[in-house]
Structure formats: C-alpha cells, structure tokens
C-alpha cells in the first residue's frame, strides 16, 4: 500500500520506553533486537503493528515494542489474536509465545490458529524449560530432564514443535536460533512476507534455568556438523568440510558422506513447497541427524479472515446491508389495532 510504503521508520521507532526486564544474558534480548531491526524494513506503519503474547518470559515481549500490544493470559494469545485478525484484517499481528505457553497450556489454541491459517506471525521461543515459574521441565524438555518438579528426571516424552505445526497444516514453518542474527532476520523477513500464518520456532537459551540447552547446535566448532542449513533448491549438504549430506533411502532419509561414489547429485534437494519432504525434515532429530534450520515448509492457502470477510461482503451483496426494520419484522408478523 502506498501509504505504508511512504513511512520511513528506524529501529528506534519500535523501541518502547519500558525497561527490558529479562535476566541478563537471556536469549530473548537477541530476538527482540532482530525484530526491532527488521521491522522498519517491512513497510508496516507502527500503528498497524500489534504484538500479542500469553504468559511466560517471552510473553513480556509486547511491552518492549513501541507498537500496539496485548499481554494476555497463559496459552490464550492465539485465540485472542484470531478474534482481532478476523475482525481487523488490516492489522499486522505478531504473536510471541514459548514452549510452555504455546505447546502446553495453549497447545489447543496454537494448532487451531495454524490450521485456520490466520495471518499471525507466531514466534515460539523454545528454551525447553519453564523460566518464569523458576525452572520446571517443559513439554519440549528431553525425557529424563532433572528439574525442580522432576528431581528423578521427567517421565514425559518431548513434543516436536515442527512436527506439530506440520500436523496442524501450518502454511509456513521455519526454525531459527537466537544467536544466529542474520539467519533469524532473514527468516523473520520471509515470515512477514508470507501470505498467511507463519510459525517460527526460535531455539533460545535460558541461561538461568537451562543454560546450554542448544549448545550442541551453537558451538562454533561443531555447529556445522549439527545444523542442516536449508536453502530452497539447494542440495542438503552440511559439515565443516561440506562433505556430508542427506540422501533418501526408500522413504527414509539417511546421512551420507560425499565421495566414494556418492555425489551431491545423489542428495535430497530442498523444496520448501514439498509437504512430504517437510514431514521428513520435521522428524530429523539428533543424535542421528543434523537439526534442519531455515524454512522447512511454505505453501499458500486462503486465510480464515479473508474467507470470513468475503462471506460478509457476499451476504451484503446478496441481501443488501442490514436494515433494522427488516430484521425486526423477520418471520410471522401481525398487527393489533
């Protein structure tokens, strides 16, 4: 829109006057910085941007963005955001949630927001722990997690957020890492540009209650071996020496070393729009596989808000705009004199 394009904003325009109250060293700072960095580039007037969150450390996010914001209740942000987006499709709504808020107490709302393809940009900060309530295991914590509520280790099998989003038929699914600034910016830009709901899992460190949870993915010396950086149209190659890749063996992906008769042409080529491939990628987990990072899947499907608003337009075209007298006199009406 021309009015939107005309707005020249800077990072500072999106910084609110509130003190950021996350623990020093929290991964959330880095994510906030990337969002504030990319927002001026998106061409969204700041009054049209709304940040909505539930409860948890991540959910303090809206207070720090100088846009409209709504810090709601535990797990319910997708429901509240859906009501706003359906009735106000002109707004650009970003939703901030975490592994507890989005996958435990709010799991139901998250899957329904994804399947409805509400155009919400959902950032799920996954630190595999409950931080705000001081250190209980979360639905993404590894089995056997020793935490305050599980002194002998948790007995819960962890949830896979990407597989959940695939199951809910989200139209845009991505994964990024709090410390990977450039990758995160690019992923968020793509999410913003996507026509429909976007789900971005951001692996994030809680340095107080679960420090180092993603260290194996982040450590400078090993990350090339543990991350599979996805690029659309490119073969799936990884490793320090770019000598390993993912090949399909029947219906099962496998890790292969390039050479000895295996060439890059034998490798899987990433196709963001291939749903079957996305299912396979979503299930690739350590220690047998590198962790896929980037845009795992994107497709287009009408959003619920476009369909619902179209129905209203169609009804107005068919029956004319509502008239109170007609409405009152619907059905059997009689007069008494």
């Amino acid at each position: 829109m021309s009015t939107e394009a005309a707005v020249k904003l800077t990072r500072k325009d999106f910084v609110s006057d509130q003190d950021v109250r996350w623990c020093p060293g929290c991964g959330d700072y880095a994510i906030l910085a990337q969002v504030q960095k990319i927002f001026p580039e998106l061409g969204i007037p700041k009054e049209k941007a709304v940040f909505i969150s539930g409860i948890g450390c991540s959910s303090r996010f809206p207070y720090y963005m100088n846009t409209y914001g709504f810090h709601t209740i535990h797990g319910r942000a997708p429901a509240i955001a859906t009501g706003l987006k359906v009735s106000r499709p002109d707004l650009h709504i970003w939703l901030v949630t975490g592994d507890g808020d989005g996958l435990s107490i709010g799991g139901n709302h998250l899957i329904h927001a994804l399947r409805r393809n509400v155009e919400l940009k959902i950032m799920l900060f996954n630190n595999r722990i409950y931080g705000l309530t001081k250190g209980q295991y979360s639905p993404t914590s590894e089995l056997g997690k020793v935490a305050k509520s599980t002194p002998m280790g948790s007995a819960d099998h962890p949830l896979n957020p990407i597989a959940l989003a695939m199951g809910a038929e989200a139209t845009f699914i991505a994964r990024s890492i709090d410390t990977e600034a450039k990758h995160q910016q690019e992923t968020l830009r793509r999410a913003a540009a996507h026509k429909g709901g976007a789900f971005i899992e951001i692996l994030q460190n809680c340095n107080v209650y679960n420090d180092g949870a993603w260290e194996y993915l982040k450590a400078k010396d090993s990350k090339a071996d543990t991350q599979l950086l996805l690029e659309h149209g490119k073969p799936m190659v990884f490793g320090k020496n770019k000598d390993r890749g993912i090949r399909l063996n029947g219906l099962t992906p496998e890790v292969v070393t390039i050479g000895n008769g295996v060439s890059t042409s034998d490798l899987l080529v990433h196709d963001e729009h291939d749903q079957t491939l996305a299912y396979l990628l979503g299930r690739m987990t350590p220690p047998n596989f590198p962790t896929p990072v980037g845009i795992l899947f994107s497709t287009e499907r009408p959003t619920i808000e476009s369909l619902m608003n179209q129905q209203i337009q169609d009804a107005i075209e068919k029956s004319g705009p509502g008239n109170i007298d007609t409405l009152l006199r619907r059905g059997d009406v009689w007069s008494v004199e």
Binding site: F51, P62, Y63, Y68, G69, F70
Partner: peptide, 11 residues
C-alpha cells in the same frame, strides 16, 4: 489499533 500516535500496551 491502527490509530496513529496512540500506540500502547495493555495486559
């Protein structure tokens, strides 16, 4: 939301 100059947060 959408009203310029009145951006604010509630919760």
């Amino acid at each position: 939301p959408g009203t310029p100059g009145l951006e604010h947060r509630i919760g």
